[in-house]
Design a protein around this nucleic acid. Structure first.
Length: 441
RNA sequence: GGGCUCGUGGUGUAGCUUGGCCUAACACGCCUCCCUGUCACGGAGGAGAUCGCCGGUUCAAAUCCGGUCGGGCCCGCCA
């Protein structure tokens, strides 16, 4: 007999069916026993009455792989009104040891216990509430791809093993490469810019490595960036794309992940319908507003303090009904200005750059890139870079041979999922998180 | 890297302030038995922890002190 999925049992009422999956829960009442079996579609309940069949389950722990043939039966008392009666059980893979972590009840996500959560992650992920996180992540990625596909982007993949770090900024991992030193990519920045010269619009969902000794709820040493780069646009178009992308990602998640969002009790999303209505604030403006409303003052800082990011998102939610905001007005004089960024034509003191904040955390950084070769070289020199460094050669060559105005973003996948589900740490939204202290499992 | 915090059966906690009634309690999970509609099933019984580790104070340490190891939070840095 061919296997059907748990979700399909409902379509076979009165007929013999076969399902396969993992033993997820046992409720042994004596003469009347219920087990739940998990497969990729979810759970199905099986009513086991026959003494010989019940005996097969003795000592079988959660995780036991089962094959079950029985009669699909409608019954209002069963979950979803459907279950399997008169089953014949085959123990495909017996499990005799009890799992070290709960599979069928919610696991704690208290900060003090995250270590245990991650230590037992391979099994903990079988917990439906944990699995829900990564179902959402998969949907979010799908939503990004849908947006990119609908807007003519070409997906690309760039190497993560590099000769040396040139982008600057974050610390880089070094490793032995047949006697030479290689580095792990801390961004796909140069490659996606190069690819604009080929396809105009490109994107990549790629691992990114940062050797920052950061111990926060926002940082990991390896994470997924959704990189996009778009040719023949201006700053306004870039903001429009990022805003529209966020709105479509959130609305797809809202539509396709109802069960998962409910499992995490997430608050309803508040976003404007149109990207142009996402509130924008200059960084100096946020500094001032924050200082007026709070006891702290961060006006002398180049970037927003985490407390300011949280505050401005709350503010925008209350006053504009938007949990997302763009932070603009970044100075070209500060160290946040990188050599490939473009200064504003009308106001060269400011960069054509924005951060996208969502539910209190920075999820993406957007900027226009300087596409004029001479200007790019000048900016590289001005920021302490050496244009003759061979690491810059591939990037500089495409500018020499014609690049249109373009811009793009680096967008943190885990931070986005974290905030969608209202989790407290990026690591909770990462299958197998990597940080300063954790390299396993 | 700086500041602050936490460490008790497989899991989550209580006890620690004010040392002794701790021969370490409770819930989940596990084992045995009872239970014909459970769905966080219920009931009775049971196994399982030298309280992260080392040292000190004391008649007496899970509890106080010092060190050490391992986590976490915030900040800096960044997605």
């Amino acid at each position: 007999m061919r296997r059907i999925l748990s979700s399909d049992v409902v379509n076979h009422a009165g007929k013999q069916v076969k399902i396969r999956g993992w033993l997820h829960k046992k409720r042994m009442l004596g003469g009347l026993n219920f087990i739940n079996v998990r497969d990729r579609a979810g759970l199905v309940q099986i009513l086991v009455e026959d003494k010989d069949e019940v005996e097969k389950l003795r000592g079988m722990q959660i995780g036991t792989v089962l094959s079950i043939e029985g009669e699909a039966a409608k019954d209002d008392r069963a979950p979803n009104g459907m279950e399997i009666h008169h089953p014949k059980l085959i123990i495909e893979v017996p499990v005799l040891d009890e799992p070290p972590i709960e599979i069928d009840k919610p696991l704690t996500h208290k900060p003090d216990n995250l270590d245990t959560l991650f230590e037992h992650r391979p099994l903990g992920l079988r917990n439906l509430r944990e699995a829900a996180i990564f179902k959402v992540q998969a949907k979010v990625l799908e939503a990004f791809r849908e947006y990119f596909s609908a807007n003519d982007f070409t997906e690309m993949n760039s190497p993560k093993l590099l000769a040396e770090a040139t982008e600057g900024g974050a610390e880089v991992f070094k490793l032995d490469y047949f006697g030479r030193t290689a580095t792990l990519a801390q961004s796909a920045q140069f490659y996606k810019q190069i690819m604009v010269g080929v396809y105009e619009r490109v994107f990549e969902t790629n691992p990114t490595y940062r050797a920052e000794p950061s111990a926060t709820t926002r940082h990991m040493t390896e994470y997924i960036t959704i990189d996009a780069e778009i040719g023949f646009i201006e700053f306004e178009d870039l903001l429009e794309h990022a805003g529209a992308c966020l709105i479509s990602v959130i609305s797809k998640t809202e539509k396709d992940c109802k069960k998962e969002l409910k499992a995490w009790n997430t608050p309803p999303f508040k976003l404007p319908r149109a990207a142009k209505d996402i509130p924008r604030y200059d960084i100096t403006e946020v500094h001032e507003m924050f200082a007026r409303a709070n006891k702290e003052n961060h006006s002398d800082e180049d970037d927003l303090a985490p407390a300011e990011e949280r505050w401005i998102c709350e503010y925008a939610k209350k006053s504009h009904g938007s949990e997302a905001v763009f932070i603009t007005g970044w100075s070209t004089k500060s160290k946040t200005f990188k050599f490939y960024h473009r200064a504003n034509e009308k106001n060269p003191e400011l960069a054509d750059r924005a951060d996208l904040l969502f539910r209190g955390v920075e999820i993406a950084t957007l900027s226009m890139r300087e596409n004029r070769y001479d200007k790019l070289i000048a900016q590289l020199k001005a920021t302490g870079g050496d244009p003759t460094n061979p690491g810059y050669a591939p990037l500089l060559s495409v500018y020499k041979y014609g690049m249109p105005p373009h811009g793009g973003w680096g967008w943190g996948l885990e931070r986005t999922v974290e905030k969608i589900l209202n989790l407290n740490s990026v690591k909770e939204a990462t299958l197998f998180p990597r940080d300063m202290n954790r390299l396993t499992p």
